[in-house]
Design a protein around this nucleic acid. Structure first.
Length: 426
RNA sequence: GGUCCCAUCGUCUAGAGGCCUAGGACAUAGCCCUCUCAAGGCUAAGACACGGGUUCGAAUCCCGUUGGGACUACCA
């Protein structure tokens, strides 16, 4: 293992693992695997009021479904508060941080004034050089940002980005309740975990100069940064619930294959010539930060669906049989513990997979072949099949499907099984 | 408002100054295959945001304009 390369995915458990987060995780994972480095999973749950254990489980489940395995973690920041306190103490001691006695209300008032008068909304530094601190008051701790000069971020994707230090404000690194804040813990953890490359969304690019100064305060070398372009909705605004499903597990529910989602996500801002379909091994071999584009990408459900049907068509029937099972159970097509002839199921799937774009559709088609007792009710069928497919099912003239039709009408499964064998072999 | 990022078909993208009459993929349309629906094959339509430079030569480099996005919390 290459000890030099260490990357991490650091979601906050305030919601599901969404499309954008999944792609960030994927790129980190690919980078680690390509370089034979370490991929670390870290849960950023310092905001206790918004973080839940349930979301942690959901995020981990999403990672597992996508087959993104990690080498270290999952670490939880709430279990590391002692470490952060030490780091804060150190900064206080060397004079890189100071106590701030301003109340949130006071700060909010100043911010409103700044907005209405069109001035920059920056902390005024009131407590920066306080001579006689009041030790009994609840205090937050602020980091002392340099106030002049430039900070340069040499980003592996965006290139050289320059920030004026005068724009940076003394950010709060520890709240008055003693809990540390994001921009600080990120750095503390990345130092502590010896992260070599930070690959994250470019919504963090503006945070980077602040974090660089924290590295400097600790006299630590900064890691390499790579800021990925955002994924947008069809209207080019940030992807959110109103654009449809954004959580990774929702795609599992809808019958998408993890390989299809991974293949779709990897092609957002990344390309390898004209190739569209990649195996996992190919991705690991080809992946490089160098051919990641700089511009945001619009999420396109049509192309994802096309990839999914491609992967369904090219999957082994045995594997599909296994994957479609939860859908059959959920729909009540088979009972939870029903004994089902897997060979028969596989052969039926073989006949249907070409026209199923997802596992949900596949299950719906299967309904008509599995339920012996169910007569076809066109009204009911209409709910699950497209008109053409319904027509196709009902007007069966194709010899092959005539046989299955008989089977479905429910005479004898072994009889049907024999006929499917004949059909699939010819 | 301030700071930062971005800009090739509707969408994802190829493009590293001449291989560009700008290539591929999704979606769209047509044709072929076919007893239906799919799948597959072929074809069509469809883009370098705009304006200035630099250069013998610009999608590609530089500047500006316009448009989009992100950040601007005792959120992450």
């Amino acid at each position: 293992m290459n000890q030099q390369i260490r990357v991490r995915f650091a979601p906050s458990p305030t919601g599901h693992l969404h499309i954008g987060g999944a792609r960030t995780a994927l790129f980190n994972w690919l980078f680690a695997r390509h370089h034979r480095g370490a991929f670390i999973l870290r849960i950023e749950d310092t905001d206790r009021s918004r973080s839940t254990d349930e979301y942690i489980d959901i995020i981990i489940e999403g990672m597992k479904w996508l087959n993104l395995d990690w080498d270290e973690g999952p670490f939880r920041q709430t279990e590391r508060f002692d470490i952060y306190r030490e780091y804060v103490e150190k900064l206080l001691k060397i004079g890189k941080a100071y106590h701030c006695y301003c109340s949130p209300e006071e700060l909010e008032r100043k911010r409103q004034i700044a907005i209405s008068s069109g001035l920059p909304m920056k902390y005024d530094g009131k407590c920066r050089n306080l001579k006689s601190p009041a030790p009994d008051m609840p205090t937050a701790v602020r980091f002392k940002m340099p106030q002049e000069g430039l900070t340069i971020v040499n980003d592996l994707i965006k290139g050289r980005v320059t920030f004026e230090n005068s724009q940076l404000e003394d950010l709060i690194i520890m709240r008055s309740d003693g809990t540390p804040t994001y921009n600080f813990v990120v750095v503390a953890d990345d130092i502590d975990m010896k992260i070599s490359h930070i690959i994250r969304g470019d919504d963090h690019l503006n945070n980077t100069p602040k974090q660089i100064h924290i590295y400097n305060a600790f006299d630590c070398e900064t890691p390499q940064f790579a800021h990925l372009p955002m994924i947008l909705g069809h209207d080019k605004s940030r992807l959110s619930k109103r654009h449809g499903a954004t959580s990774v597990l929702a795609y599992r529910e809808m019958g998408y294959l993890p390989e299809a989602l991974v293949n779709y996500l990897v092609r957002l801002s990344w390309a390898h010539g004209d190739q569209e379909i990649f195996t996992k091994d190919e991705l690991i071999e080809y992946f490089s930060l160098q051919n990641i584009g700089k511009s945001a990408a619009v999420f396109n459900p049509d192309k994802l669906l096309w990839l999914n049907s491609h992967y369904i068509m090219n999957s082994d029937v045995e594997k599909l049989a296994e994957m479609v099972m939860p859908f059959l159970i959920k729909k009540g097509i088979i009972a939870e513990n029903q004994d089902i002839d897997l060979l028969w199921l596989s052969k039926t799937i073989h006949l249907l997979k070409e026209r199923s774009k997802n596992l949900d559709e596949l299950a719906n088609s299967l309904r008509y072949f599995i339920s012996d007792s169910v007569e076809i009710d066109p009204k009911a069928a209409e709910k699950f099949l497209k008109p053409q497919s319904l027509e196709y099912l009902c007007e069966i003239r194709n010899a092959l499907f005539t046989q299955i039709f008989h089977l479905r009408l429910g005479r004898n499964r072994s009889e049907g099984s024999r006929k499917i064998s004949e059909a699939t072999e010819s």
